[in-house]
């Protein structure tokens, strides 16, 4: 009887283990890390509370169990644990992404400049490269790419090199981009908007850091920029006048002009 009981316990444990594995692979949870599963509040149905919550400036660390697409270990850990982007589920209502640094999760939308600068000090070059890769990857979601770009922009000087690489990176070609009503055409617009945002960030930084001007002066040398009339024009604004910050003023003027109508 005792043997039977032990046998039952062993086999039922295996069954539970099998069930657990099966559960992990279910479509709903497969995109989330183990930690996220523990953190994520269980609710029977998704409502728009996520987006409402994320539309507010939230607190920073450990507050938001959303997705952790890029686990960014600290510099000290980088030798043993490389940053690995995990596959993630993208939902339309998601409005920002979290990153994990030093075992803590941070909602990017909630990071202020001081937070971002502090976090940037713990990132390795490899991790900066991975952030840039996400931003330049057309297969990643719009929110994720903009979130990571926002993170770079908030870092100020630490993000300059990556921002520079983003601006001068070649805009990818999409199969149906010539169809203006296609998804591919929208992708093309997204690619342009990311580069304009990065360029504007550099232009702003040049007002406080003269060294950034040397980056700006080299942007036109990139074929991808010089071949794109709009990017070419925007990138020349600061330099032609010798007034950093002019691109930002120009873009603000463009918006103000339309809002004044």
């Amino acid at each position: 009887m005792r043997l039977n009981l032990i046998f039952i316990i062993i086999v039922s444990s295996m069954g539970s283990l099998l069930i657990l594995i099966s559960h992990k692979n279910s479509p709903v949870l497969s995109s989330q890390s183990q930690t996220q599963q523990q953190d994520r509040p269980h609710s029977p149905q998704i409502d728009n509370s996520d987006s409402e919550k994320n539309d507010e400036k939230a607190t920073t660390a450990n507050n938001d169990p959303q997705l952790s697409p890029l686990n960014l270990p600290s510099k000290e850990n980088s030798n043993t644990e490389s940053a690995q982007p995990t596959s993630d589920r993208t939902r339309a209502e998601e409005s920002s992404f979290s990153i994990a640094v030093n075992g803590k999760k941070y909602d990017i939308a909630s990071l202020d400049e001081a937070d971002a600068e502090r976090l940037s000090e713990t990132l390795s070059q490899q991790q900066f490269k991975e952030i840039k890769t996400v931003i330049l990857s057309p297969s990643e979601s719009e929110v994720k790419r903009h979130s990571y770009l926002y993170f770079l922009m908030q870092m100020k000087q630490a993000g300059v090199s990556s921002l520079y690489e983003i601006v001068k990176s070649e805009i990818p070609q999409f199969e149906f981009q010539n169809n203006p009503h296609s998804q591919d055409a929208r992708k093309k617009t997204l690619e342009l908007s990311l580069r304009i945002a990065a360029l504007e960030a550099l232009d702003n930084l040049a007002t406080i850091d003269p060294q950034v001007r040397s980056y700006l002066s080299q942007i036109n040398q990139s074929k991808s920029v010089s071949d794109h009339p709009i990017l070419n024009y925007l990138s020349s604004l600061s330099l032609a006048s010798g007034k950093p910050g002019k691109l930002h003023r120009a873009l603000e003027a463009i918006i103000n002009e339309k809002e004044a109508l």
Binding site: D55, E56, K57, S95, S96, E142, V143, H146, S147
Partner: peptide, 8 residues
């Protein structure tokens, strides 16, 4: 108020 939505 979401800075990512603002940026987009």
């Amino acid at each position: 108020k979401n800075p990512i939505h603002q940026q987009i």
